[in-house]
Simulated assay, not measured.
Amino acid sequence: MGQMVYLYMNKFNSLIQLFDYFKDDETCEKYLGAKRWGDTITCPHCGSAKKAYVTNRGYKCSDKDCHKKFTVKTKTIYENTKIGLRLWFGALYLVTAHKKGISSLQLARDLDVSQKTAWFMLHRIREMLNDQDPSLMQGTVEVDETYVGGKNKNRHAHKKIDSTQGRSAKDKTPVVGMIERNGKVKTFVVQDTNSDTLHNIVKSNIDANVTLITDAYRSYNGLGTVCNHITVKHTENNYKTEGDKHTNNIEGFWSLFKRGLVGTYHYMSPKHLQRYMDETSYRYNTRKVADSNRFEMAILKCDTPRITYRKLTEKERTS
């Protein structure tokens, strides 16, 4: 069954075709099981690959030290959900296929669920799309920051904040982006963009032989001691140095992200901003594959622990 499902997955290219195949939750569960376990059902509690007992609601681990019951959804983002897997798969396809994402209002209309349910589903999916790859970036890497938040000039007079021009985090949330030339992008929501913050991010994510390209922001000063650091001075209208040294790729990624922000989401709270960045980064990093393959790659990340609605909506502590 797993092999049959795998062969089919490259053949759909629309939401209608996806729903034609995933006609019920039973088909979805078989597909999810094939993706998680292949031909050997594995206990998600203890990792045992011994033959599991089949129960009326799923499986039971046969390992004598475990004996816990589980289903194909145990320890995934779908655990304890009251929403059918067919709708989850539809939401996942729409999130990964739409270049600028999809809002909770639009997803609610498309799947005929409430806006609250759609919002919850989207954040669980974003949590799943977080890139956990520990490998270091190679070759030529561009680094830049952007700031997410409303513009001061658009605020009412009593809401304006002084000295928020340029790289100010008083009223906006900074995001650091790193992009490997002809490779993947990584993004990090941060509290500030001082030298300690930027240096720690760069050092933790690049190989020592990397050629690092940044603008002339002073917080990048000193990175030449850990790698080959090239600076492009945008203030002098110098956007490309000799030898194809520029930050155009990361600037292009910011442009794509902000089109989604302005055109689809309109607002991203600082609390959830990293999840929005993970969603955008996932689509960018899989931009060269077909929608069906991008969907399938996302399914393989379903083992991410679910995030609860309470966790999503609780107020952040200010202490």
Rank of each mutant, 00 (worst) to 15 (best):
residue 151 K to L: 08
residue 76 T to I: 01
residue 177 G to M: 04
residue 116 K to T: 12
residue 25 D to H: 10
residue 317 R to C: 05
residue 16 I to F: 11
residue 47 G to C: 05
residue 156 H to S: 11
residue 57 R to M: 08
residue 310 R to L: 11
residue 191 Q to V: 02
residue 17 Q to I: 03
residue 10 N to K: 14
residue 40 T to P: 00
residue 83 I to A: 06
residue 224 G to M: 07
residue 319 S to N: 09
residue 57 R to K: 13
residue 273 L to W: 03
residue 41 I to K: 02
residue 260 G to C: 08
residue 298 A to C: 13
residue 284 Y to I: 08
residue 151 K to F: 03
residue 210 V to G: 04
residue 145 E to Q: 06
residue 291 D to R: 14
residue 131 D to N: 14
residue 198 L to I: 11
residue 287 R to F: 04
residue 220 Y to R: 02
residue 33 G to R: 06
residue 82 K to M: 13
residue 94 L to G: 02
residue 197 T to G: 10
residue 141 V to Y: 14
residue 71 T to C: 10
residue 291 D to G: 10
residue 82 K to C: 00
residue 98 H to R: 10
residue 258 K to F: 02
residue 310 R to F: 15
residue 44 P to Y: 01
residue 282 Y to H: 07
residue 23 K to T: 15
residue 264 T to N: 06
residue 128 M to L: 15
residue 317 R to G: 13
residue 307 I to S: 01
residue 25 D to A: 10
residue 277 M to L: 13
residue 218 R to N: 14
residue 241 T to V: 07
residue 15 L to W: 04
residue 89 F to E: 09
residue 131 D to P: 01
residue 204 S to C: 04
residue 35 K to P: 05
residue 303 D to S: 07
residue 273 L to V: 00
residue 113 V to S: 05
residue 45 H to R: 00
residue 126 R to F: 09
residue 219 S to N: 08
residue 47 G to Y: 06
residue 208 A to K: 15
residue 102 I to V: 15
residue 161 I to Y: 06
residue 97 A to T: 13
residue 60 K to Q: 15
residue 13 N to C: 12
residue 123 H to K: 10
residue 308 T to H: 08
residue 202 V to Q: 04
residue 217 Y to V: 12
residue 82 K to R: 15
residue 233 K to C: 00
residue 165 Q to C: 09
residue 119 W to L: 01
residue 197 T to K: 15
residue 132 Q to T: 07
residue 81 T to Q: 08
residue 198 L to V: 10
residue 103 S to F: 08
residue 140 T to L: 14
residue 167 R to L: 11
residue 294 R to N: 04
residue 100 K to L: 12
residue 185 V to A: 10
residue 291 D to F: 12
residue 266 H to D: 06
residue 71 T to M: 13
residue 140 T to V: 15
residue 295 F to Y: 07
